[in-house]
Design a protein around this nucleic acid. Structure first.
Lengths: 130, 130
DNA sequence: AAATAACCTACTATGTCAATAGGTAAAAAA
DNA sequence: TTTTTTACCTATTGACATAGTAGGTTATTT
């Protein structure tokens, strides 16, 4: 289940794309999207650390995208916000090799599923939403 | 992320399908699959309540599938075990209608994603694994 | 100097996951 | 009829994630 972290972040990123290039204050986005500003702050930090947006302090400041909307995929955003988009623990990034992997009857299906999900989100860009 | 609930349950169901029709003791399945018997007990209860398996007490007892393996889909099992396979809260079973639904730019994608996932698991049957 | 805005640390309430522990009821074999 | 085997049931726990809230600090512009 995709959590609010990923869903809110995506909506904010689309909002940023829609507002053009200029810096957009978080307060405005929170109001437009109907999301708690305080909560959004935390999510923005993750996006900044992930190199997806950058913020400018002070009057006239705000957030802006680091890249053009057609260069940012939904997959990147979700991966940042949801920790990892691995669909099963066996396929997660730092997971130790499962001892049953060689004989596991279900693993091939999970791999197929994992690829399906990744491809789905990798193929969608911010520019598709505006 | 698919949890151990869903993954273990699927493995047990495949195990049951492989052992033929006769009742299979949980102890044997737990050993074969390398899963805690006590934990599996809880999962079996859910499967029983869901009408997917039925248990027989006493010596010579055990669990058996309620239907033929080609009549049981992975989707049914996961839906039972993971509570609901809704991929976002907005699309969950008893969710109240989101006030932003009519103007939400992301909802169409979530719907598409939800359908993709559902179709993927609905199209796979236990008999595909044996 | 004042206003604006991002940035930062810390806390909390709720819920789920993944089990564990210990006991009860049913059914078959001895 | 007793014993064994098996499912069934209730309760509890530790760890972690989610979805926030609260309050303060730094940076930048007017």
């Amino acid at each position: 289940m995709i959590s609010t972290r990923g869903r809110y972040a995506l909506r904010v990123m689309i909002d940023l794309a829609e507002q053009g290039g200029g810096p957009v204050p978080l307060k405005d986005m929170a109001e437009r999207q109907g999301i708690s500003k305080k909560y959004l702050e935390i999510l923005m930090r993750d996006l900044v650390e992930g190199g997806l947006v950058r913020g400018a302090s002070g009057r006239g400041g705000g957030y802006r995208l680091c890249r053009a909307p057609d260069e940012i995929s939904v997959g990147e955003i979700l991966e940042r916000m949801e920790g990892s988009m691995a669909t099963v623990a066996c396929l997660a990034e730092g997971a130790e090799e499962c001892p049953r992997a060689s004989c596991c009857k279900t693993l091939p299906m999970w791999k197929e599923y994992d690829r399906l999900v990744h491809d789905f989100f990798a193929g969608r860009r911010l520019s598709d939403f505006v």
